[in-house]
Design a protein around this nucleic acid. Structure first.
Lengths: 145, 145
DNA sequence: TATTGTTATACTCTATAACTATA
DNA sequence: TATAGTTATAGAGTATAACAATA
Protein backbone atom coordinates (compact mmCIF):
# COMPACT_ATOMS: atom_id res chain seq x y z
CA UNK A 1 0.00 0.00 0.00
CA UNK A 2 1.16 3.47 -0.73
CA UNK A 3 0.67 6.55 1.29
CA UNK A 4 -2.09 8.59 -0.25
CA UNK A 5 -1.83 12.18 -1.32
CA UNK A 6 -3.01 13.95 1.72
CA UNK A 7 -3.31 17.61 2.55
CA UNK A 8 -1.38 18.50 5.64
CA UNK A 9 -3.84 20.67 7.43
CA UNK A 10 -7.56 20.20 7.51
CA UNK A 11 -8.85 22.40 4.72
CA UNK A 12 -12.49 23.11 5.13
CA UNK A 13 -15.44 22.73 2.82
CA UNK A 14 -14.85 22.02 -0.81
CA UNK A 15 -11.13 21.42 -0.35
CA UNK A 16 -11.82 18.64 2.10
CA UNK A 17 -14.21 16.96 -0.31
CA UNK A 18 -11.70 17.22 -3.14
CA UNK A 19 -9.07 15.64 -0.95
CA UNK A 20 -11.39 12.84 0.19
CA UNK A 21 -12.22 11.98 -3.38
CA UNK A 22 -8.60 11.95 -4.54
CA UNK A 23 -7.61 9.88 -1.52
CA UNK A 24 -10.33 7.30 -2.15
CA UNK A 25 -9.47 7.16 -5.85
CA UNK A 26 -5.78 6.63 -5.14
CA UNK A 27 -6.43 3.95 -2.55
CA UNK A 28 -8.70 2.11 -4.96
CA UNK A 29 -6.02 2.32 -7.63
CA UNK A 30 -3.41 0.90 -5.26
CA UNK A 31 -5.72 -1.94 -4.29
CA UNK A 32 -6.50 -2.80 -7.91
CA UNK A 33 -2.79 -2.94 -8.75
CA UNK A 34 -2.18 -5.17 -5.74
CA UNK A 35 -5.06 -7.40 -6.81
CA UNK A 36 -3.17 -8.26 -10.00
CA UNK A 37 0.19 -8.47 -8.22
CA UNK A 38 1.63 -5.31 -9.70
CA UNK A 39 3.08 -2.20 -8.11
CA UNK A 40 1.32 1.05 -8.89
CA UNK A 41 4.19 2.09 -11.15
CA UNK A 42 4.04 -1.21 -13.04
CA UNK A 43 0.29 -0.92 -13.48
CA UNK A 44 0.64 2.65 -14.75
CA UNK A 45 3.25 1.76 -17.33
CA UNK A 46 1.62 -1.48 -18.42
CA UNK A 47 -1.66 0.35 -18.83
CA UNK A 48 -0.05 2.93 -21.08
CA UNK A 49 1.16 0.35 -23.58
CA UNK A 50 -1.96 0.37 -25.69
CA UNK A 51 0.32 0.51 -28.68
CA UNK A 52 4.03 -0.12 -29.06
CA UNK A 53 5.93 2.95 -27.88
CA UNK A 54 9.39 4.28 -27.28
CA UNK A 55 10.84 4.38 -23.78
CA UNK A 56 11.35 8.13 -23.96
CA UNK A 57 7.69 8.87 -24.56
CA UNK A 58 6.80 6.93 -21.43
CA UNK A 59 9.28 8.91 -19.36
CA UNK A 60 7.80 12.11 -20.73
CA UNK A 61 4.24 10.99 -20.04
CA UNK A 62 5.00 10.11 -16.45
CA UNK A 63 7.31 13.03 -15.83
CA UNK A 64 10.08 10.80 -14.56
CA UNK A 65 13.63 9.97 -15.54
CA UNK A 66 14.21 7.60 -18.45
CA UNK A 67 16.28 5.29 -16.28
CA UNK A 68 13.22 4.77 -14.14
CA UNK A 69 11.26 3.52 -17.12
CA UNK A 70 14.11 1.21 -18.03
CA UNK A 71 13.83 -0.48 -14.65
CA UNK A 72 10.07 -0.81 -14.67
CA UNK A 73 10.13 -2.10 -18.25
CA UNK A 74 12.72 -4.70 -17.31
CA UNK A 75 10.49 -5.97 -14.52
CA UNK A 76 7.42 -6.07 -16.73
CA UNK A 77 9.47 -7.99 -19.27
CA UNK A 78 10.65 -10.35 -16.57
CA UNK A 79 7.02 -11.00 -15.68
CA UNK A 80 6.25 -11.81 -19.30
CA UNK A 81 3.82 -8.91 -19.55
CA UNK A 82 5.75 -6.77 -22.04
CA UNK A 83 8.56 -7.08 -24.58
CA UNK A 84 11.19 -4.61 -25.73
CA UNK A 85 12.25 -4.75 -29.35
CA UNK A 86 14.74 -2.82 -31.43
CA UNK A 87 13.26 -0.18 -33.69
CA UNK A 88 14.53 -0.92 -37.20
CA UNK A 89 13.95 2.71 -38.22
CA UNK A 90 16.29 4.09 -35.53
CA UNK A 91 18.59 1.56 -34.05
CA UNK A 92 19.26 3.62 -30.94
CA UNK A 93 15.61 3.31 -29.99
CA UNK A 94 13.61 0.50 -28.49
CA UNK A 95 9.92 0.01 -28.54
CA UNK A 96 8.00 -1.66 -25.75
CA UNK A 97 4.70 -3.44 -26.21
CA UNK A 98 2.37 -5.56 -24.12
CA UNK A 99 2.25 -9.29 -24.59
CA UNK A 100 -1.00 -11.24 -24.66
CA UNK A 101 -0.39 -12.01 -20.99
CA UNK A 102 0.01 -8.28 -20.37
CA UNK A 103 -3.28 -7.59 -22.11
CA UNK A 104 -4.98 -10.11 -19.85
CA UNK A 105 -3.52 -8.52 -16.72
CA UNK A 106 -4.68 -5.08 -17.83
CA UNK A 107 -8.16 -6.44 -18.35
CA UNK A 108 -8.17 -7.92 -14.87
CA UNK A 109 -6.90 -4.63 -13.50
CA UNK A 110 -9.71 -2.73 -15.19
CA UNK A 111 -12.23 -5.05 -13.61
CA UNK A 112 -10.61 -4.63 -10.20
CA UNK A 113 -10.43 -0.84 -10.47
CA UNK A 114 -14.10 -0.19 -10.00
CA UNK A 115 -13.79 3.18 -8.32
CA UNK A 116 -14.45 5.65 -11.10
CA UNK A 117 -17.02 3.33 -12.63
CA UNK A 118 -18.88 2.96 -9.34
CA UNK A 119 -18.68 6.68 -8.64
CA UNK A 120 -20.20 7.46 -12.03
CA UNK A 121 -22.90 4.86 -11.52
CA UNK A 122 -24.17 6.66 -8.41
CA UNK A 123 -24.99 9.71 -10.50
CA UNK A 124 -27.65 10.31 -13.12
CA UNK A 125 -26.59 11.27 -16.63
CA UNK A 126 -27.41 14.90 -15.90
CA UNK A 127 -25.39 14.83 -12.69
CA UNK A 128 -22.45 13.26 -14.49
CA UNK A 129 -22.49 16.07 -17.01
CA UNK A 130 -22.72 18.68 -14.25
CA UNK A 131 -19.83 17.11 -12.35
CA UNK A 132 -17.68 16.91 -15.46
CA UNK A 133 -18.38 20.56 -16.28
CA UNK A 134 -17.58 21.71 -12.75
CA UNK A 135 -14.34 19.76 -12.60
CA UNK A 136 -13.26 21.06 -15.99
CA UNK A 137 -13.92 24.59 -14.82
CA UNK A 138 -12.11 23.95 -11.53
CA UNK A 139 -9.12 22.63 -13.46
CA UNK A 140 -8.93 25.83 -15.41
CA UNK A 141 -10.99 24.85 -18.37
CA UNK A 142 -8.50 22.66 -20.17
CA UNK A 143 -10.17 19.67 -21.73
CA UNK A 144 -8.85 16.19 -21.16
CA UNK A 145 -7.09 15.06 -24.31
CA UNK B 1 8.44 12.91 -9.07
CA UNK B 2 6.13 10.00 -8.59
CA UNK B 3 4.11 8.17 -11.11
CA UNK B 4 0.54 9.37 -10.95
CA UNK B 5 -2.46 7.18 -10.49
CA UNK B 6 -3.50 6.56 -14.00
CA UNK B 7 -6.27 4.47 -15.48
CA UNK B 8 -4.93 1.94 -17.91
CA UNK B 9 -7.38 2.31 -20.72
CA UNK B 10 -8.97 5.50 -21.89
CA UNK B 11 -12.30 5.58 -20.09
CA UNK B 12 -14.64 7.98 -21.75
CA UNK B 13 -16.64 10.90 -20.47
CA UNK B 14 -16.95 11.42 -16.77
CA UNK B 15 -14.37 8.78 -15.90
CA UNK B 16 -11.77 10.58 -17.95
CA UNK B 17 -12.48 13.86 -16.19
CA UNK B 18 -12.26 12.20 -12.80
CA UNK B 19 -8.93 10.72 -13.73
CA UNK B 20 -7.60 14.02 -15.08
CA UNK B 21 -8.52 15.77 -11.87
CA UNK B 22 -6.94 13.14 -9.63
CA UNK B 23 -3.82 13.10 -11.78
CA UNK B 24 -3.42 16.88 -11.65
CA UNK B 25 -4.03 16.89 -7.89
CA UNK B 26 -1.44 14.18 -7.28
CA UNK B 27 1.16 15.86 -9.46
CA UNK B 28 0.64 19.14 -7.66
CA UNK B 29 1.03 17.36 -4.32
CA UNK B 30 4.29 15.75 -5.45
CA UNK B 31 5.60 19.08 -6.66
CA UNK B 32 4.72 20.82 -3.40
CA UNK B 33 6.53 18.15 -1.37
CA UNK B 34 9.57 18.47 -3.63
CA UNK B 35 9.46 22.24 -3.22
CA UNK B 36 10.10 21.82 0.50
CA UNK B 37 12.63 19.00 -0.04
CA UNK B 38 10.42 16.25 1.32
CA UNK B 39 9.25 12.98 -0.17
CA UNK B 40 5.51 12.56 -0.53
CA UNK B 41 5.46 10.10 2.36
CA UNK B 42 7.38 12.50 4.58
CA UNK B 43 5.04 15.37 3.69
CA UNK B 44 2.01 13.18 4.44
CA UNK B 45 3.26 12.13 7.85
CA UNK B 46 4.59 15.53 8.83
CA UNK B 47 1.28 17.08 7.84
CA UNK B 48 -0.62 14.67 10.06
CA UNK B 49 1.24 15.70 13.19
CA UNK B 50 -1.11 18.50 14.13
CA UNK B 51 -0.97 17.17 17.64
CA UNK B 52 1.37 14.72 19.32
CA UNK B 53 0.36 11.20 18.36
CA UNK B 54 1.34 7.59 18.76
CA UNK B 55 3.16 5.78 15.96
CA UNK B 56 0.44 3.17 15.69
CA UNK B 57 -2.29 5.66 14.93
CA UNK B 58 -0.24 6.99 12.02
CA UNK B 59 0.18 3.50 10.59
CA UNK B 60 -3.54 3.00 10.87
CA UNK B 61 -4.35 6.32 9.24
CA UNK B 62 -2.10 5.63 6.27
CA UNK B 63 -2.96 1.97 5.99
CA UNK B 64 0.67 0.91 6.10
CA UNK B 65 2.89 -1.20 8.31
CA UNK B 66 4.13 0.28 11.59
CA UNK B 67 7.75 -0.33 10.61
CA UNK B 68 7.20 1.99 7.70
CA UNK B 69 6.18 4.80 10.02
CA UNK B 70 9.22 4.11 12.17
CA UNK B 71 11.50 4.76 9.21
CA UNK B 72 9.74 7.89 8.04
CA UNK B 73 9.64 9.24 11.58
CA UNK B 74 13.35 8.59 11.98
CA UNK B 75 14.06 10.60 8.83
CA UNK B 76 11.81 13.45 9.90
CA UNK B 77 13.58 13.45 13.24
CA UNK B 78 16.94 13.47 11.48
CA UNK B 79 15.81 16.52 9.55
CA UNK B 80 14.88 18.22 12.80
CA UNK B 81 11.22 18.44 11.79
CA UNK B 82 9.78 16.08 14.41
CA UNK B 83 10.67 14.54 17.74
CA UNK B 84 9.75 11.22 19.30
CA UNK B 85 9.26 11.10 23.03
CA UNK B 86 8.40 8.37 25.49
CA UNK B 87 4.84 8.34 26.72
CA UNK B 88 4.98 8.42 30.52
CA UNK B 89 1.50 6.88 30.73
CA UNK B 90 2.52 3.75 28.78
CA UNK B 91 6.21 3.23 28.53
CA UNK B 92 5.92 0.91 25.56
CA UNK B 93 4.53 3.78 23.52
CA UNK B 94 6.14 6.76 21.87
CA UNK B 95 4.55 9.95 20.76
CA UNK B 96 5.74 11.94 17.81
CA UNK B 97 5.24 15.67 17.41
CA UNK B 98 6.36 18.41 15.04
CA UNK B 99 9.08 20.80 16.04
CA UNK B 100 8.89 24.51 15.32
CA UNK B 101 10.99 23.85 12.23
CA UNK B 102 8.46 21.20 11.21
CA UNK B 103 5.63 23.68 11.62
CA UNK B 104 7.45 26.11 9.35
CA UNK B 105 7.96 23.46 6.68
CA UNK B 106 4.30 22.52 6.79
CA UNK B 107 3.36 26.14 6.34
CA UNK B 108 5.64 26.42 3.33
CA UNK B 109 4.16 23.20 1.96
CA UNK B 110 0.63 24.58 2.30
CA UNK B 111 1.63 27.65 0.37
CA UNK B 112 3.25 25.53 -2.33
CA UNK B 113 0.29 23.17 -2.62
CA UNK B 114 -2.03 25.59 -4.33
CA UNK B 115 -3.98 23.05 -6.35
CA UNK B 116 -7.18 22.58 -4.36
CA UNK B 117 -7.20 26.22 -3.37
CA UNK B 118 -6.83 27.36 -6.97
CA UNK B 119 -9.43 24.88 -8.18
CA UNK B 120 -11.94 26.16 -5.65
CA UNK B 121 -11.15 29.76 -6.55
CA UNK B 122 -12.24 29.14 -10.14
CA UNK B 123 -15.75 28.31 -8.96
CA UNK B 124 -18.47 30.47 -7.47
CA UNK B 125 -19.78 29.65 -4.02
CA UNK B 126 -22.83 28.01 -5.56
CA UNK B 127 -20.68 25.94 -7.89
CA UNK B 128 -18.46 24.86 -5.02
CA UNK B 129 -21.51 23.64 -3.13
CA UNK B 130 -22.79 21.81 -6.21
CA UNK B 131 -19.42 20.17 -6.80
CA UNK B 132 -19.13 19.11 -3.17
CA UNK B 133 -22.62 17.62 -3.23
CA UNK B 134 -21.98 15.72 -6.46
CA UNK B 135 -18.67 14.32 -5.25
CA UNK B 136 -20.22 13.24 -1.96
CA UNK B 137 -22.96 11.46 -3.84
CA UNK B 138 -20.44 9.89 -6.22
CA UNK B 139 -18.44 8.64 -3.23
CA UNK B 140 -21.49 6.88 -1.90
CA UNK B 141 -22.76 9.57 0.38
CA UNK B 142 -20.29 9.20 3.22
CA UNK B 143 -19.35 12.54 4.64
CA UNK B 144 -15.74 13.53 5.08
CA UNK B 145 -14.84 13.32 8.74
C1' DT C 1 28.06 16.59 -31.46
C1' DA C 2 23.36 15.23 -30.07
C1' DT C 3 20.08 11.63 -28.95
C1' DT C 4 18.21 7.02 -27.13
C1' DG C 5 18.50 4.11 -23.87
C1' DT C 6 21.12 1.47 -20.37
C1' DT C 7 24.07 0.64 -16.32
C1' DA C 8 25.91 1.82 -11.76
C1' DT C 9 24.89 3.80 -7.62
C1' DA C 10 22.54 5.70 -3.71
C1' DC C 11 18.54 6.90 -1.19
C1' DT C 12 13.69 6.30 0.00
C1' DC C 13 9.40 3.58 0.49
C1' DT C 14 7.39 -0.57 1.81
C1' DA C 15 6.35 -5.12 3.84
C1' DT C 16 7.64 -9.35 6.54
C1' DA C 17 9.82 -11.45 10.26
C1' DA C 18 12.13 -11.36 14.45
C1' DC C 19 13.06 -8.78 18.41
C1' DT C 20 12.80 -5.62 22.95
C1' DA C 21 10.35 -3.57 26.41
C1' DT C 22 6.29 -3.00 28.73
C1' DA C 23 1.53 -4.11 30.02
C1' DT D 1 0.28 -13.70 26.70
C1' DA D 2 -0.61 -9.44 24.23
C1' DT D 3 0.74 -4.85 22.67
C1' DA D 4 3.82 -0.71 20.99
C1' DG D 5 7.42 0.06 18.61
C1' DT D 6 11.99 -1.03 16.62
C1' DT D 7 15.51 -3.48 13.91
C1' DA D 8 17.02 -6.37 10.13
C1' DT D 9 16.34 -7.39 5.64
C1' DA D 10 14.86 -7.50 0.93
C1' DG D 11 12.53 -5.81 -3.20
C1' DA D 12 10.84 -1.88 -5.69
C1' DG D 13 10.70 3.18 -7.13
C1' DT D 14 13.41 7.13 -8.12
C1' DA D 15 17.09 10.39 -9.58
C1' DT D 16 21.96 11.51 -10.93
C1' DA D 17 25.96 10.51 -13.35
C1' DA D 18 28.52 7.96 -16.52
C1' DC D 19 28.33 5.16 -20.46
C1' DA D 20 27.39 2.68 -25.25
C1' DA D 21 25.41 2.78 -29.59
C1' DT D 22 23.56 5.25 -33.16
C1' DA D 23 22.20 9.44 -35.64
Amino acid sequence: MGLPSRPSGAPSGIETVLYEFVDAYDRAYDAAAAAVDLSVAQACVLGSLNSSRGMGSLAEEFGCDASNITQIARRLEGLGLAVRELDPADRRARKIARTAAGDAVVQRFEEAFAYARAAAARLTDVEQAQLAALLRKAMGGQLPQ
